[in-house]
């Protein structure tokens, strides 16, 4: 199996869409999605990226969003992140790393009836929060988790 196909299969199993393969730069966006939101992914500030992508409505912090990510990353280049949202009517799950040069990392549009679940791996240049924004019932909810990216080397 070639590497690209593997990753696409894994990505689609994990997320239920091809969004991950797109976010990882594996596919030319225009060949997959007609309206690739390049402006949002190019924003340098997280708040700008979120409002460009999802509109500028206010966000509510929610305990119904669970972010699973390591406390300290084993490799900042591939940090595994899983977002689970248990509220009703989840339309999309967006993942951002505000300390990255381009904070918007991935956004998953979910079909009606899909579980609020997205899993991917993100690149983090340095320590900071991983932010999840969930759109459900037309409203935006958010949660965050701190992930440390260290130089490493003196445990024991």
């Amino acid at each position: 199996m070639n590497e690209l196909r593997r990753l696409i299969i894994k990505g689609s199993v994990a997320a239920g869409t091809l969004g991950v393969a797109v976010g990882a730069g594996l596919l030319v966006p225009t060949s997959v999605l007609a309206a690739w939101p390049d402006k949002a992914f190019g924003e340098k500030k997280m708040d700008d990226a979120i409002s460009t992508l999802l509109g500028s409505g206010g966000m509510t912090e929610s305990a119904e969003i669970n972010i699973k990510a390591p406390e300290i990353a084993e490799n900042g280049a591939v940090v595994p992140v899983t977002v689970t949202a248990t509220m009703a009517g989840v339309e999309s799950i967006t993942i951002a790393a505000p300390n990255n040069p381009s904070p918007l990392v991935a956004s998953f549009d979910l079909a009606d009836g899909a579980h609020g679940y997205a899993s991917t791996r993100i690149k983090m240049g340095k320590s900071g929060d991983v932010v999840a924004v969930v759109k459900a019932g037309g409203k935006l909810y958010t949660a965050k988790k701190e992930v440390k990216v260290t130089i490493g080397g003196c445990g024991g």
Binding site: E71, I72, E146, K148, T150, I151, G152, G153, C154, G155, G156
Partner: peptide, 25 residues
Amino acid sequence: KAILEDVCDNLFNPDPYFQQGGDMV
């Protein structure tokens, strides 16, 4: 300084889940 700060946080981060359990470099 970056190395010293990094290791020092492994030791003294107030949240134990961010500590690695070694001592200072």
